[in-house]
Design a protein around this nucleic acid. Structure first.
Length: 563
RNA sequence: GUCCCAGUAGCUCAGCUGGAUAGAGCAACAGCCUUCUAAGCUGUGGGUCGCAGGUUCGAAUCCUGCCUGGGACGCCA
């Protein structure tokens, strides 16, 4: 923030060499209360160096600091509080936002380098549950944020499309499957078959052998096995795509586990060549004793590879293909150990890019304080919840704005927005207690609240345009505008923090706060009132729509102009 | 047993690299629509910041120990 630099610079002129400008900048903070100004410099550190009372130092500094952009410098106890010239600063910032439009807040840390983001990654033939929602929504937001920061995002859906379960699935299908049923209702049918297999296998263990045999055939590329596998994969993907479509999320790659099958051997060879492999209880592992970690398992005792092998292979493939500057994995926190092992193994393989691997873990969705179990069939289906949210949004529109055009589209945007926002407003590491109620809430800290704020603002702009009134970045000085301006100024900062911490909730919190300030403003100030400040107020409103829309976009929400 | 994460208002959560009076949203109660969309705004009540020590001018924030909850810990992913 340039004003902070400016303040640090001005302070530095009177402080001398005891603290550098950057040190000062780090000390300067944003006061808690508006009465305390726009920036505050606490004098404790200085007091220690100069062996003077901080209160005295503050008093002294307050008297000597002057700048045209500062309206007032005030000593308040041990703090030197700085008040900006609202007229000048607000005019300048509004002008900047209007000029940059949706590029306001762009942060140039990246320079077109690629960042791969591995997220969503559902398992074929299994329902898309609430649990997958987190990875999907967080990953997508991170991809948007990363792009906002100057990188190129590669969205990768690492599908769970391989493994012994396909042997079981094929076996079950051959015994009890009906093609038409699967075709009509793929995932539920396939899941039913999968469950049936497990039930029957308890009584007739021969099924397990059969399943193993089918999986072996699949691995050997036998025609029928491969054809069935491909079919299961296709129909599952079609269902997933329906959900991605609803959520407005797309991927650049669907290379899942199966894709790496023929590339695994090379990874094992490389590990061998580098002398990292050691036998252990019949298996092949990479020891990580020096890190005080359990070994990374590469090959089972029967010679088959494991998921660590697959992740190592995928990492190498992605580096070769995309030359990523960072490779992000949006995967649940229960896999933290696994990723540490994989990343350290890459490091032992001497890949310089091993340091660019990052696991972005997130908490579970809990039900009654416990992890939701897929096994017990008590899964809540995401699609159902989305549909319910859309329906509720439609009902609201009917009640509150029945003449709205494209009702259906808006209902979709609002319903989906509620669900995405409900997830992203929480810090990703925290567990989330599953709450249908929470996802179907449109008031308070919700997506619809922010969308509604945006729509209200748009409505003012539309009314103004109808009267041929143009916004103009004229300075505003009242407290309500100023609160909004300050919030607008904080946008780039929110983005930077979100990027540095891989934390979309920073943006969610930000757009909510901006909405709050704007709604207060809206309630207190009549924008379209013909006086000399009207065009300035209009500019403020327009800035708010720009920033809200862009913030929502980063989170993956649409911003309808009316609702 | 070892390691990781969390414990703030009745509920769900903020609180930035320690700083000035502990903050929202739900829920409860009381107000505000002849005026730009009331999916909004205003007000009231509600907190030993898990417990105990320590670091210092100052700790919800940093360190140690303990308690509670969740998770991970070799052939599943």
């Amino acid at each position: 923030m340039e004003l902070k630099q400016l303040y640090a610079h001005e302070l530095s002129k009177h402080i001398g060499e005891s603290l550098t400008v950057t040190e000062l900048e780090e000390l300067i903070e944003k006061p808690k209360y508006a009465k305390q100004g726009d920036l505050a410099f606490p004098c404790f550190a200085l007091a220690k160096i100069k062996r003077q009372s901080p209160v005295e130092i503050a008093k002294g500094l307050a008297q000597v600091i002057h700048h045209t952009l500062f309206a007032k410098i005030e000593a308040n106890g041990p703090y030197v509080n700085c008040f900006f010239d609202k007229h000048q600063v607000s005019a300048a910032w509004m002008k900047q936002i209007l000029l940059k439009g949706n590029h306001y807040g762009d942060v140039q840390v990246g320079n077109g380098e690629q960042i791969t983001i591995d997220f969503s990654s559902p398992n074929i033939a299994k329902p898309f549950s609430m649990g997958h929602l987190r990875s999907t929504v967080i990953g997508n937001a991170l991809a948007n944020i990363v792009e906002k920061c100057g990188y190129h995002a590669v969205r990768i859906n690492h599908l769970g499309d391989w493994g012994t379960q396909f042997g079981k699935l094929i076996t079950a299908y051959k015994h009890w499957g009906v093609e038409e049923k699967v075709r009509a209702n793929p995932i539920p049918e396939l899941l039913k078959l999968y469950v049936e297999f497990h039930e029957k296998a308890i009584e007739s263990p021969a099924l397990e052998d059969e399943a193993r045999a089918w999986f072996k055939k699949l691995e050997d590329g036998e025609a029928e096995a491969h054809q069935l596998w491909e079919w299961f994969r296709d129909v599952s993907l079609q269902e997933f795509n329906r959900i991605y479509e609803l959520l407005g999320i797309h991927f650049d790659s669907y290379h899942g586990e199966a894709f790496y099958n023929d590339k695994m051997e090379r990874t094992v060879e490389l590990l061998q060549e580098k002398g990292l492999l050691s036998p252990s209880k019949g298996a092949e592992v990479v020891r990580l004793d020096e890190y005080d970690l359990p070994p990374c398992l590469i090959k089972k005792s029967d010679g088959a590879t494991l998921y660590a092998t697959r992740d190592l292979t995928a990492a190498r493939y992605r580096q070769d293909t995309y030359h990523f500057a960072k490779a992000i994995y949006v995967v649940g926190q229960e896999q933290q150990l696994h990723f540490r092992q994989v990343f350290l193994t890459l490091e032992k393989m001497n890949y310089p890019w091993a340091k660019d691997m990052v696991h972005v873990p997130f908490g579970f969705i809990l039900k009654n304080g416990k992890k939701m179990s897929t096994r017990k069939g008590k899964v809540v289906l995401l699609e159902k919840v989305i549909e319910e949210a859309i329906e509720l949004a439609a009902k609201n529109i009917e009640a509150k704005n029945p003449t709205l055009k494209n009702k259906h589209e808006v209902a979709k945007q609002v319903g989906v927005g509620a669900i995405i926002f409900q997830d992203l407003r929480h810090e990703r590491q925290n567990h989330i207690e599953f709450s249908l109620e929470g996802m179907l809430k449109f008031e308070g800290m919700t997506g619809p609240y922010v969308q509604y704020t945006h729509a209200r603002a748009c409505s003012i702009l539309a009314n103004a345009a109808a009267q041929a009134i143009q916004p103009s970045a004229i300075g505003l000085t009242d407290d309500y505008s100023w609160a909004v301006i300050k919030q607008l100024m904080a946008f780039p900062n929110a983005i930077e923090t979100a990027f540095k911490q891989f934390e979309p909730s920073e943006i969610a919190k930000y757009v909510f706060q901006l909405s709050q300030e704007f709604n207060k403003y809206y309630n207190q100030v009549k924008v379209l009132q013909a006086d000399e400040h009207m065009q300035g107020r209009l500019a403020l409103v327009q800035c708010v729509t720009i920033v809200l829309k862009e913030g929502l976009r980063l989170l993956g929400l649409k911003a309808p102009e009316s609702m």
